[in-house]
Design a protein around this nucleic acid. Structure first.
Lengths: 149, 149
DNA sequence: CTTGTTTTTTGGAATGATTCCTATTACCAT
DNA sequence: ATGGTAATAGGAATCATTCCAAAAAACAAG
């Protein structure tokens, strides 16, 4: 946990506005003017892989970051772009979720997207085979699709 | 509905692989070698604004397109990047959804993200005011946050 | 406190999906 | 045909994000 990383996390914990990497860079620069944007990106990435920070991608071209990692969802205003939290009631059906969101946030909900991530049947086989091999020989497989954004 | 647009839609309707814009470009090029990538982008955008095509952004750096617009969700393999459809049961709670997805797709579900889009309280006021004005004078307001990806 | 070793940061360049721009082409009604 | 409108082609520009090489910091051991 370097000074830079600690400061990034601290600044992120101060706000609930879901800042972009550039926003975080601006904020952190006020205390540490020589920090580089690359460092901000690298540490946000690192922190999110450690689970200390949540990375949010709502398809608006910039990723946003959130230091509040409890179970909640987000709603984005289609007009001004603002992003707010919405509590998640895991037992509710979608219709109930809609109403819950409108009641707690005051938004008028226009749409909702549910995306899953997991291991496809083939990759399950591969990873099972790989772990079987690992326990005897020494081996490894190619990583996931390279991503960028 | 130009020839190019029709062909793009036709090719998209042939597959259920959720191709990227570049994939669509490749496919369409086989029938129409002089089509430009810009045209593909513009028409995919147009078709998705008309609701004939669904634009899917799963945060992997490239948008994907889907000509099947019935109500369904998507699951992405975290290892190979493949994207599959999952039927959506709107009445189910999240736990039931997880099980339903695993049963129908054979994936091992790792996570699920629910994102809402709507109008925030301020913009609701603004748009109400704007439509009130529109009905008397002649006027208009700034559009949504400019997005890119 | 030096020396060497490893990790992190900087600063800037590179990447790549997407958008923008302009001249050209296709379409259509007269 | 002709003029006007809308769409396309081709390529340049944009911009969030990633990558890289060199410098700096952190750390360990003598």
């Amino acid at each position: 946990m370097t000074k830079q990383r600690a400061l990034i996390l601290e600044e992120l914990r101060k706000v609930r506005t879901h800042p972009t990497a550039a926003d975080v860079y601006e904020a952190v620069r006020r205390c540490m003017p020589r920090i580089s944007l690359g460092t901000v990106y690298r540490n946000l990435d690192l922190l999110s892989r450690e689970g200390l920070v949540r990375r949010i991608d709502l398809g608006t071209g910039k990723k946003r970051y959130d230091a509040f990692v409890e179970d909640h969802s987000h709603i984005r205003c289609s007009s001004c772009g603002r992003v707010d939290d919405v509590p998640l009631h895991r037992a509710d059906g979608l219709a109930a979720m809609y109403h819950g969101v409108e009641r707690t946030t005051g938004y008028e909900v226009q749409s909702c997207e549910i995306d899953f991530v997991g291991l496809c049947p083939e990759c399950r086989k591969d990873s099972a085979a790989a772990s079987r091999e690992r326990s005897s020989r020494k081996n490894d497989l190619a990583g996931p699709e390279k991503t960028r954004k």
